[in-house]
């Protein structure tokens, strides 16, 4: 479904990804773990075209998209829930969700899709017409995930969905994600909350200093981490 081959990325003068390869199969949830600054967010950003990639390949459903501009990538079935959410803070929750479907040629059924997101996150219903920037961090994260789901992606890319959220909210967000997993959605997630991430994912990659240093099942990843193989918690 998604395949990265020897992907290299620079941000300014710094090489952040040093030839990373990974793959995600259809219907699979894969976690990408690693310490701060390992390049995990950069990897997701590179998949979406936010950072130029001088070498390597991004392949989605058999199509190479390494040189496709950012705004075209969503047409390949990729949607990103970005680092720090990046919602449209001056727009209402409803507008944020509707605009997630911007690339879709036919806009019929938007109301139905918004209703599905509200089903996933009932807490958003009462904030529907409020400006998204006024919501709590957890609610904003739900808006960000909902917006991405409005694009009807084949693969959802999640960048630290639990960042800065209270434990009870993290639980709610991960419950929604596990419902999405059950519906058959393919997910690649970057997450610092290792136990939550590995509980949801079936496989994991571990990244250090722009290299992928480990690949295996979630159980193996747990084992590798608990042995202090990597200094993250």
């Amino acid at each position: 479904m998604l395949e990265l081959v020897e992907l290299t990325t620079r941000r300014g003068r710094v090489q952040v990804l040093n030839g990373c390869s990974l793959s995600v199969a259809k219907g699979e949830v894969v976690a990408l773990l690693g310490p701060n600054g390992a390049g995990k967010s950069t990897l997701l950003g590179t998949v979406m075209g936010l950072y130029p990639s001088p070498a390597g390949h991004v392949i989605v459903q058999g199509q190479e998209i390494t040189r496709v501009p950012i705004h075209r990538r969503i047409h390949y079935g990729l949607a990103l829930v970005p680092e720090r959410r990046q919602i449209f803070s001056h727009l209402t929750v409803e507008d944020n969700l509707q605009l997630g479907a911007f690339h879709r040629r036919r806009r019929g059924g938007l109301a139905q899709d918004v209703a599905e997101v509200m089903d996933l996150f009932p807490g958003l219903l009462k904030h529907r017409h409020r400006k998204a920037g006024w919501l709590s961090g957890g609610e904003q994260q739900m808006v960000a995930i909902g917006r991405a789901m409005m694009a009807k992606p084949e693969i959802l890319l999640l960048d630290e969905p639990s960042l800065g959220l209270a434990p009870v909210i993290v639980k709610e967000v991960f419950e929604a994600l596990s419902r999405l997993k059950e519906s058959g959605l393919t997910i690649l997630m970057v997450e610092q909350n290792v136990s939550q991430a590995l509980a949801l994912a079936s496989r994991a990659y571990i990244m250090v200093h722009g290299h992928i240093v480990f690949s295996g099942s979630s159980r193996e990843a747990h084992h590798a981490l608990s042995e202090g193989y990597l200094a993250i918690g």
Binding site: M48, L50, I70, H71, R72, R73, I74, H75, A79, L80, P82, Q86, I87, F88, S89, H90, L91, D95, N96, Q98, L99, G100, F102, H103, R107, R147, A151
Partner: peptide, 24 residues
Amino acid sequence: TYLGRGMEAAMDNPQAAQLFGMDP
């Protein structure tokens, strides 16, 4: 209008707007 909301979104957060298919 939907396009107008898209323009407001692009003014609000240009990068997120691009991620969702809005052509700068």
